[in-house]
């Protein structure tokens, strides 16, 4: 039998081991995603309803002028597609982050957190894994949208990947930060009402900001300050092979700030059980 007291000192983790850890977390998230088909379908239904019903209904009402990155008039469905992609990532980020926060005393997060890797690496890997899943959802959406005449230049389907990685990561970190800090957000309905809907509607996802400015300058500035606007624009320009540098800077900066805040705020000892007086078991 192996004498464990003679096992080598394994606590100095190498870069290769960090990589193995990251790959393992992403792989597990992908497996979970494959086994939860209903989650996949429900994640697709939401943006498709917007695309098939809302956009069709408002096509005539909300005309869109020629604005970058578009070089000609586009259908309203084409205009809102980037916003709907961002919406997929927003929902996915919020949902997975909320699970991470409220699972920290029980379930899989405990297993994750007793790993010898630094907590910042574990949480970053987990956020990245959630982002990968959201990208799969985005491509499924783009495929269906293609049949609905929502087409982008072929190269855009590849060039959008870095934008999706960054935006998904930023939205996931935001979700983790918010749900770690705000006690009242103890269920997804709270997040929907107070985070997702305000972020989505006060952005350029559904209408160009120059139109918002015409009706309400104040709302225009609110939309400009909303990181979701910049996520939408980053994705919109990337789909057409262009970079919106201002949005890139905002999204990257927010990703760093939200991630740092989330890592600090994500302390299992400040979770539900701690607030309710400790675990019930023993």
């Amino acid at each position: 039998m192996t004498v464990l007291t003679n096992t080598p000192d394994r606590h100095r983790l190498t870069l290769a081991q960090y990589w193995i850890c990251l790959c393992g977390i992403v792989w597990r998230e992908a497996l979970r995603f494959i086994h939860q088909r209903e989650r996949f379908i429900s994640a697709l239904v939401r943006p498709l309803v917007w695309l098939f019903i809302f956009a069709a209904g408002f096509r005539q009402v909300l005309g869109v002028s020629i604005i970058p990155p578009y070089e000609t008039y586009v259908l309203y469905e084409v205009y809102i597609a980037p916003g709907l992609i961002a919406m997929i990532q927003l929902f996915n980020g919020m949902q997975s982050s909320l699970t991470m926060v409220y699972d920290r005393e029980t379930g899989g997060m405990r297993t994750l957190l007793v790993s010898p890797f630094p907590r910042w690496w574990l949480l970053t890997s987990k956020l990245l894994a959630g982002t990968m899943v959201s990208i799969l959802q985005v491509y499924a959406f783009l495929l269906i949208a293609w049949f609905w005449d929502v087409e982008v230049p072929p190269v855009g389907y590849f060039l959008v990947i870095p934008a999706l990685l960054l935006s998904g990561f930023m939205l996931g970190a935001l979700g983790m930060l918010i749900s770690s800090l705000i006690k009242q957000l103890e269920n997804f309905a709270g997040v929907m009402n107070f985070v997702i809907f305000p972020m989505f509607f006060a952005s350029s996802a559904l209408y160009p900001l120059w139109r918002v400015k015409e009706s309400s300058p104040f709302l225009y500035y609110v939309c400009q300050a909303n990181p979701f606007t910049h996520v939408t624009e980053l994705i919109r320009f990337a789909l057409y092979g262009k970079v919106e540098w201002g949005s890139l800077a905002v999204v990257a900066g927010c990703a760093v700030v939200f991630l740092c805040g989330a890592i600090i705020a994500y302390d299992p000892s400040r979770g539900f059980l701690a607030r309710r007086g400790g675990p019930s078991g023993g």
């Binding site: 394994r10 960090y18 193995i20 850890c21 977390i25 792989w27 597990r28 297993t111 790993s115 010898p116």
Partner: peptide, 17 residues
């Protein structure tokens, strides 16, 4: 939802194995 082996592979990755 996943197999015994897949659970263990995941845990191994969490220890850099």
């Amino acid at each position: 939802d996943i197999s015994v082996q897949q659970n263990l592979i995941y845990h191994a990755a969490l220890h850099g194995i």
